[in-house]
Write a protein that binds this DNA or RNA. Structure first.
Length: 684
DNA sequence: TTGACTATCTTTTTT
DNA sequence: AGATAGTCAA
């Protein structure tokens, strides 16, 4: 967003420094400007950069905020700002205070896959679905601040009681491993601050002013952590929008917004209502929809961009037809010259699977597109396995990588052995890999286990040596294939999959990965012009070292001129000139599962989702419904979503179009004439 | 009864 | 794209 004079509400938000402040930032109201300007203001008021904390939910948001801040206040000042996600702030706290909560200094963080494996182990099942269900339930409990005992008390049925029991064993296992999961990154610092005034005071002194972005997405544990951090001084600014709270299903609660004025009576609430994104026609539809929800804080968006095109309401005969119409619309707007780029378009939908039909239609029309969200290549289990090995080669103290590598493929080293090893490494304050070669290891583990660990250690050392001394694409490929053969990875994939085809598909992903890594080891890289460029050869280890950087760059992707396909959830915070809202039907948006009954709260969240979708659009918005839609075997009648009526598109705008006025006048005169005529004929 | 193949059907997702 | 339920054959 271009630098622009702040409006009065934004200025008020930026300059309110002496107490707690809640900024209700409507969609497109320039909240990031407010946050970055406020940081600048805080520096001006004498706060040191290192004492200002800004908390976001995603790494992407944190990075963007840092970029904006750097732009505004310069790299030197920005570098000391504490801008991080809730989770990385948790890591920071735990790294410093780990021992106080019984954590070794080099604790591991398990990702979602690791957690699933531990749960399968702890719960004694191989059933993926069951493990997922436990993971989900346990995570929700943790996000409400419950430990295993609390969970057992609140468990409503046998299913939940079983989950609570698994949770207890899961926690035991985590502490044996010296590991934490994502949820612990918030709850452990909270527990620490609640019980340890010294640690709390220390962190309150470090983060003297706190800014919390997307406050409506906080869960109760995160809110408690914020409360502990800001303490009695209550120097903070929360920025959020109750109308854009769409993550209730994963523990976020707008109760946190209601509680804020109760917990901080001196709270200053500042709504930002001027929108710098959309036309009036679009904002009117958005305001009308969201007005149906009960409000916590009243606000109504407006903009200075004029009425603009009316919101288009489209009806399609079915999914395929809808996709065709989307394509037609893109082509039409482009040929009218209203949209120079494909990147000006987005197609938004409720559920991921809806993307498929659109992909097909776009491919056929040869329109470039990208599907945002969805699983990336590097999220696949087999790729993560191999990345685990490579990470361990690079940094042998990376315990999560160690755990992953040592257990895939299975080599007779189970949780008992690993528990012993972890305890040992915790006691001697070294990594698990280091512990593996300790002289005294045999005093805590049986001979056989120690032998197996040594065997693994030798494999790693040998592999590390070879990776360090192997250069160039061809040699790298040979080395990597040798390694996979040695550890029997292909067999492991084929064995662990019920279906041989699935196993083969996974193996083919592995081969792609080998190809990817070895190409990066150098030799020759062909540029797209066809010209071949000689690159410097790199060792396999060097490539492995940069892998995480390359991954995050690959994830970002170069900006290309493509139509965006994305879920409504993933669209929050983004904007496009032309937005196509697909499948706005009862059952889909609002979504309704077969067995579930719709609570008012659920419906309100769905309505907010619609609101988020509408407010993504800058200049044109098309809302599409299906007259027929596929359900089960047959095609059923599609009922337009109630949200369409709620947009009240037929209602004329406040400032009446002169042509409309004229039309109405004519009608009135005609009516009068009719009455007169009737009176005359009666008189006759 | 079991097993393989096919048809069907998907909520939303970050750390 | 991936899991799962259902179907058909041995």
């Amino acid at each position: 967003m271009a630098a622009r004079q702040l409006n009065p509400a934004q200025l008020a938000a930026v300059h309110h420094l002496d107490g707690p402040c809640l900024v209700i930032a409507g969609a497109g109201s320039g909240k990031t400007s407010v946050i970055t300007q406020k940081i600048a203001r805080l520096l001006q008021a004498g706060y040191a950069a290192k004492n200002i904390g800004a908390i976001t939910f995603t790494n992407k948001a944190a990075q963007e905020m840092r970029e904006r801040a750097t732009h505004l206040i310069g790299a030197r000042a920005a570098k000391d700002l504490v801008i991080s996600t809730f989770h990385s702030l948790g890591v920071r706290i735990l790294r410093a205070e780990g021992p106080r909560v019984g954590l070794k200094e080099q604790f591991s963080i398990l990702d979602s896959d690791d957690v699933l494996n531990v749960l399968k182990d702890a719960g004694g099942t191989t059933d993926m679905g069951q493990a997922r269900h436990w993971q989900w339930t346990i995570s929700l409990w943790k996000n409400q601040g419950y430990n295993a005992q609390d969970a057992l008390k609140v468990a409503k049925d046998d299913d939940e009681r079983a989950a609570a029991i698994v949770m207890e064993r899961y926690q035991d296992r985590l502490s044996a491993y010296g590991a934490v999961d994502f949820d612990d990154l918030i709850s452990l610092p909270l527990r620490l601050f609640a019980s340890d005034a010294e640690a709390r005071g220390k962190w309150q002194d470090t983060l003297r002013y706190l800014l919390v972005d997307e406050y409506q997405d906080t869960n109760s544990v995160q809110y408690e952590l914020v409360k502990q951090l800001v303490g009695e001084r209550a120097m903070f600014t929360a920025v959020g929008d109750d109308d854009q709270s769409i993550y209730g299903w994963r523990g976020a609660t707008i109760e946190n917004l209601k509680r804020l004025p109760q917990d901080f009576p001196q709270l200053k609430v500042i709504p930002l209502e001027q929108n710098y994104r959309s036309t009036s026609a679009i904002l009117r539809a958005a305001n009308n929809v969201i007005a149906v929800n009960p409000k916590i804080y009243e606000k109504k968006l407006w903009s200075e961009f004029g009425e603009g095109d009316p919101v288009a309401l489209l009806e399609a005969d079915g999914e395929e037809h809808e996709a065709e119409r989307a394509v037609a619309r893109i082509n039409a707007l482009r040929s009218e010259g209203k949209a120079p780029n494909y990147a000006d378009f987005a197609i938004l939908y409720r559920a991921n699977h809806q993307a498929r039909v659109f992909e097909k239609a776009l491919r056929r029309a040869e329109i470039p597109y990208k599907v945002s969200g969805g699983q990336s290549f590097f999220d696949k289990a087999e790729i993560k396995d191999l990345c685990g090995w490579l990470r361990l080669l690079v940094n042998q103290d990376d315990d999560p990588a160690f755990l992953r590598a040592v257990t895939t493929p299975k080599r007779g080293i189970g949780h008992t052995t690993l528990g012993g090893l972890s305890e040992f490494s915790g006691k001697w304050k070294c990594s698990m890999f280091e512990a593996l070669f300790a002289e005294t290891l045999h005093t805590v583990l049986p001979r056989r286990a120690v032998d197996q660990l040594h065997e693994f250690g030798r494999t790693i050392n040998e592999l590390e040596f070879r990776c360090r001394t192997t250069f160039g694409a061809e040699d790298a490929r040979v080395l990597l294939m040798d390694w996979l053969k040695d550890i029997g990875y292909e067999q492991h994939l084929l064995d662990s999959e019920e279906n041989e085809k699935v196993g083969a598909a996974r193996w083919s992903n592995v081969l792609d990965f080998v190809d990817w890594v070895s190409r990066r080891c150098g030799g020759q890289i062909t540029q797209d012009g066809g010209a071949t460029v000689e690159a410097e050869k790199q060792s396999v280890l060097q490539v492995a070292q940069t892998i995480s950087v390359i991954l995050s760059l690959a994830e970002r992707g170069e900006e290309q001129d493509q139509v965006t396909l994305t879920t409504l959830h993933a669209s929050k915070g983004l904007e496009w000139p032309h937005v196509f809202l697909a499948g706005v039907n009862e059952g889909l948006l609002p979504f309704k599962a077969e067995d579930e009954d719709m609570t008012p709260q659920r419906l309100e969240e769905e309505r907010r989702l619609m609101y988020v979708g509408i407010t993504r659009a800058r200049t044109t918005l098309a809302v599409s419904t299906l007259r027929r839609r596929k359900k089960n075997r047959e095609t059923v009648m599609g009922i337009p979503s109630r949200f369409i009526a709620e947009m009240r598109l037929h209602e004329s705008q406040t400032k009446e179009d002169p042509r409309e006025k004229l039309k109405k006048l004519r009608e009135q005169m005609a009516a009068k004439a009719a009455v007169t005529a009737a009176a005359q004929s009666k008189a006759d």
